[in-house]
Design a protein around this nucleic acid. Structure first.
Length: 344
DNA sequence: AAATCGGGGCA
DNA sequence: TGCCCAGATTT
């Protein structure tokens, strides 16, 4: 039996029931694919439902404020996805008359839509015969065909695209692409793979040579920088605090935070001394560190060492934010979680 | 080509 | 801890 028939047969017996599979609407297909980039289905599911409910059409999303899109995205990470999502919604709504591009080539022109996502939308929403290559596809094909190329290079990505193009079922590309990804997520798992029920067990090169846990090969290793952040939670006598928006090209771009002392060196801060050098230091009546133990927050390329400080004042700041309105702002999840821990 | 961009789950 | 997840963009 040929590869695609065997794969699709497995899929029909084992596929997951996912909400974005109940439609061919390119808006929902696109929305789900952006949410799922580098994100597990279990983590993305509630966000898909929230976006679908809050923004039922691309016009609703286009008419939203970016701050509100980021607030709904809060906790999902890789926030450029949310900014690009909003920008693309505005383009589709206002420049493309609400119609998404209908081909792989044209989909590639959208912000936040790369080769994988364009192939996913083109095949799933429009039945274009173009193969997806994501982390699942790398793993499945590397194992079954014993491909040992380093998957972190662009050269290898083209190699896998060629292999997948030779395997995709021309009659049902949408089914094939979703099948190979489900197969990677459910059967051909990254770790602890149980190969006994696998339909490819007799031909899988990795299994036959006992190298399932060696493939795919990925050589690139990310180096992580330490970063030290002390957030200052100002509080006046009326219960107002202060916020600022992160605007630089840095982590958490366009999200909100408390004013921060931020550095890449492990230099201890004498907070009382530091605050006395700030303007309006005379209004400060109380300084207190709220974190006994440093909070470690691990990002993909940075390890954050975080403390929160309470700074009470007896004057109202220029832009007071009532504490009760903090839930209107999108925060990095580590800040949001700390706010929650205070409120409860 | 390499670096950057989150957060959570799992052995 | 280290690796991975329906990757894309910038440098």
């Amino acid at each position: 039996m040929i590869f695609s028939n065997k794969l699709i047969a497995w899929y029909l017996d084992n596929k997951r029931f996912l909400p974005w599979r109940e439609t061919k609407d390119p808006y929902y297909i696109w929305l789900s694919e952006i949410i799922l980039q580098q994100t597990r289905v279990a983590q993305g599911l509630p966000y898909f439902e929230a976006f679908k409910q809050t923004y039922p059409t691309v016009f609703n999303l286009a008419n939203a404020q970016e701050d509100d899109v980021l607030l709904l995205w809060q906790g999902l990470g890789y926030y450029s996805r949310a900014r690009n999502l909003h920008a693309t919604a505005k383009k589709v709504a206002y420049e493309l008359n609400g119609q998404f591009p209908t081909t792989y080539k044209d989909l590639l022109t959208l912000k936040g839509v790369g080769e994988y996502t364009a192939a996913a939308i083109a095949s799933i929403a429009y039945d274009e015969v173009v193969p997806v290559v994501d982390g699942n596809v790398f793993r499945v094909l590397a194992r079954i065909y014993g491909i040992t190329s380093d998957i972190s290079t662009q050269r290898t990505k083209k190699e896998f695209q060629q292999v997948a193009a030779g395997l995709i079922c021309p009659e049902q590309p949408a089914i094939f692409n979703q099948a190979i990804m489900d197969f990677g997520a459910i059967q051909c798992t990254p770790k602890g793979t149980d190969c006994t029920p696998c339909p490819f067990i007799t031909t899988c090169v990795a299994y036959q040579t006992n190298q399932v846990d060696k493939l795919p090969v990925k050589l690139s290793k990310t180096k992580v920088k330490n970063r030290y952040m002390d957030f200052l939670i100002y509080l006046d006598e009326a219960g107002n605090t202060q916020l600022e928006q992160r605007t630089k090209k840095d982590i958490w771009q366009n999200l909100y935070q408390f004013p921060v002392v931020d550095r890449f060196e492990d230099t201890p801060i004498n907070m009382e001394e530091y605050l006395q050098q700030q303007p309006s230091s005379s209004a400060i009546t109380h300084i207190e560190c709220l974190t006994q133990e440093v909070i470690i927050h691990q990002l993909s390329h940075q390890k954050l060492h975080i403390h929160f400080w309470l700074v009470k004042t007896n004057t109202t700041p220029a832009n007071p934010i009532p504490w009760e309105e903090l839930n209107k702002f999108g925060f990095p999840i580590v800040i949001h979680n700390f706010i929650q821990s205070l409120t409860v």
